[in-house]
Computed example of a mutant assay.
Amino acid sequence: MSRSIDLIADLGEGYGAWTMTEDDALTRIVSSANVACGFHAGDPSTIRESVALCVERGVAVGAHPSFPDLRGFGRRRIELPPSDIEADVLYQLGALEAFLRPHGHRLHHVLPHGSLGNMTVVREDYARAVARAVHAFDPRLTVVYQEGWMIRAAEEEGLPVARVGFPDRAYNEDGTLVRRALPGALVEDPHEVAERAVRMAVDGTVTTASGTTLGLACDSLLVHGDGPSAVSTASTVRQRLESAGVEVAAWSGR
């Protein structure tokens, strides 16, 4: 069955002289980007450069809001009042869109980063806080995440949603991601990642860490941009998707 999928990478994940993502190469491959908004990575100059590359190459720009955790790269679990999460996300959306406005563009989507994203799957209070912030900023914005409270809260706020698959991450039986600290949490071989991506896009399934097959509806696929093989992986995934008859294009609410 031929279909379309949004191929996303995380971009702008640097701070000053420190850089983790190869934005120049990745913007030649993906259809959309999650750009760090300053809380887990991304100083103003880095954000501006990442946005400019995306605009130049026709890559849709989404926000990648995080817990305020530069030191932990947004991957530490943080307990915050939902009102603080709402304010933090709203702040980050405004910061990123400020760099899009000079180009005459607006944000395409929001995909929570790291531990914040993981917690919105299982925490109703965190998910609703993120959804309220997105709705307050722009009710046309698409919320991108996996099934769970984040998708449910966004839908109840009347926001467009797109479900995402993570072909380079291992899944638990309940559809959540295996914690990064555990063995096998990351799928690092580009060809294995590409094979998983095709199954997600075409069959709507993923093999869990325990070897069972899990149904997985997805409109987009995220390849993490901070690994050493990120460019090779993204390129291999795109080639395999297109070979399987899958069009790679930014999500438009199809």
Rank of each mutant, 00 (worst) to 15 (best):
D226M: 10
W251D: 05
D226A: 11
F99C: 13
A136F: 04
A209K: 13
S252Q: 14
E155R: 15
D168M: 01
L70E: 09
D88M: 15
S210V: 14
Y145H: 15
T233I: 01
A194I: 04
R75Y: 12
R199C: 06
P44F: 02
A250V: 01
R140T: 15
V55C: 15
V248T: 03
H105V: 09
A136K: 14
T208L: 03
V193W: 07
H103S: 05
H40R: 10
D226H: 12
C37R: 08
T213K: 07
R132G: 04
P228G: 14
V161C: 13
G94N: 08
R76A: 08
N34L: 06
G12R: 07
Y145Q: 09
A129S: 05
L186E: 11
E188Q: 14
R128S: 08
M1L: 07
E195D: 14
D23W: 00
D88W: 15
D203W: 00
P44I: 00
R240A: 15
E247N: 11
P82N: 07
R180Q: 07
G245V: 01
T120M: 05
R57Y: 03
E192Q: 15
L70C: 10
E173T: 11
S252I: 00
R254A: 12
R140W: 05
L177S: 07
L80H: 12
M119N: 12
D125I: 11
S83E: 15
V121A: 09
R132A: 14
P82D: 08
S210D: 14
A154C: 01
S252M: 04
T205Y: 02
D203G: 02
S2I: 02
A41S: 15
L221M: 10
L96S: 09
F99L: 11
L96R: 10
P68A: 10
E147T: 14
A217V: 10
L159K: 09
A95E: 03
E147L: 07
L111V: 09
E49P: 02
T19W: 02
G253V: 02
R238M: 07
L159I: 04
P160C: 10
Y91V: 00
D203L: 08
D43G: 13
A133V: 13
F39M: 12
T208M: 08
G58V: 06
G175Y: 04
T176L: 07
D189W: 08
V198T: 01
G148R: 00
S32T: 02
S83M: 06
G184Y: 08
T236N: 02
A185K: 12
E242A: 01
C54H: 06
R254Q: 11
D125M: 13
A249L: 06
S50W: 04
R152M: 13
I151N: 00
E124D: 13
S115Y: 03
F67C: 06
V206Y: 02
F137Q: 06
A201V: 08
